[in-house]
Design a protein around this nucleic acid. Structure first.
Length: 352
DNA sequence: CATCGATGTTGAG
DNA sequence: TCAACCTCGATGG
């Protein structure tokens, strides 16, 4: 079983951490850098037992014995590729952009059909803890084996592409390609990283995290559309979740943070927690909750743009009716929003 | 098959 | 403000 990680917003990193916890933690790891650019770090990790893995925002932290913590940030196009005896399931596999997607989606749909389960709130839990026997198989889309399930006769497989680091146990292997960051931290460096990150609902639950977010946003006049992308304000949101959260909250992205009412920000935080939980549980970036038929939900799974209200939907009438979706640049990124719908907060009824 | 753009971040200028 | 990172699906010829 192989799966890659094509969607590096916060939910993906939590799923990667889950996979490491499930299939690597507790095992002694052979670390190498086939590409060579992480040779020293790999040598430092080589032969150590992996103790744990966690995610904060888009940062992955993999803990090894001896106070060595592998810190990885995937950046724009980095990816982990898991193979070997990897305990995955249809839900987890559906996050994979590399294997036979039609098959995987079919499995996914089948798993939830029969009741109201097509609604994201009712999608099945990721069953990483309830899998059947692991298989030593490979589902890689190479030239001659597209979409086919190929027995993995030689484990581990040859690295494909520029592999910065390979983590290998007796049963499983993880290859990292194209990361922005890949380095060995000590606990103090981890603490420094965590200290500069805003709260992540998956990592910092409860009112304290919510309060931290609200206070940070209201501290400055920076537009909310920029603040949601600022990892020191809130960790894990990327360009897709930013656009969709603002649409769902009907917030004008240009609104200065300090002008947004506290209750609005509390709802925004809870909505982020909600979307992130769906993303982690299902592996899908599903940001719509107006799909009331299974047919609509299948369409949304089949086409990326159908999963979103505004992201990459320039020119379309917004699904909730009012106004067209426009694109503009904000913070060096493409921002998608619907000015006719995202009209909050209303201007104060004074002056003139 | 060539080219482009992307769900992100850093660091140079 | 922008190039770099150096992947890879989507798009066009």
């Amino acid at each position: 079983m192989t799966w890659g990680t094509p969607v590096p917003e916060g939910h993906s990193i939590h799923r990667i951490a889950m996979q490491f916890r499930r299939n690597f933690a507790g095992s002694r790891v052979a670390a190498s850098s086939p590409q060579g650019r992480f040779a020293a770090g790999a040598a430092d990790l080589d032969g150590r037992v992996m103790l744990d893995a966690s995610a904060i925002g888009k940062h992955l932290l993999v803990e090894f014995e001896g106070d060595r913590i592998l810190h990885v940030h995937l950046g724009l196009y980095g990816a982990w590729d898991f193979a070997g005896e990897i305990e995955a399931d249809a839900t987890l596999a559906s996050a994979n952009g590399r294997m036979g997607q039609t098959n995987q989606r079919g499995t996914f749909i089948e798993a939830v059909a029969g009741d109201q389960a097509f609604h994201p709130d009712a999608l099945p839990e990721s069953s990483l803890n309830s899998m059947g026997a692991p298989r030593r198989t490979r589902l890689r889309m190479a030239e001659s084996e597209k979409g086919e399930d190929v027995e993995l006769e030689n484990f581990p497989p040859e690295p494909i592409g520029q592999v910065r680091v390979r983590l290998l146990t007796e049963r499983a292997v993880a290859d990292l390609r194209g990361p922005t960051a890949c380095e060995v931290f000590d606990p103090q460096q981890v603490a420094q990283l965590v200290a500069k990150l805003g709260p992540d609902p998956m990592h910092d639950s409860g009112k304290a995290a919510e309060d931290r977010f609200v206070a940070a946003v209201r501290r400055s006049a920076t537009p909310i559309g920029l603040q949601l992308m600022d990892q020191s304000v809130v960790a894990g949101i990327g360009n897709v979740y930013r656009a969709e959260l603002l649409f769902r909250a009907r917030l004008n992205p240009h609104t200065p943070g300090k002008d947004i009412p506290v209750p609005t920000l509390r709802k925004l935080w809870r909505d982020w927690a909600h979307l992130l939980e769906i993303g982690v549980r299902t592996g899908q970036m599903m940001t719509r909750d107006d799909l009331d038929t299974e047919e609509a939900y299948k369409r949304a799974l089949a086409s990326r743009e159908e999963r979103h209200y505004v992201y990459k939907r320039t020119g379309l009438k917004s699904p909730r009716g009012r106004g067209q979706v426009v694109m503009e640049e904000m913070g060096g990124r493409n921002l998608y929003w619907a000015p006719g719908w995202q009209t909050l907060p209303k201007p104060k009824p004074q002056d003139g």
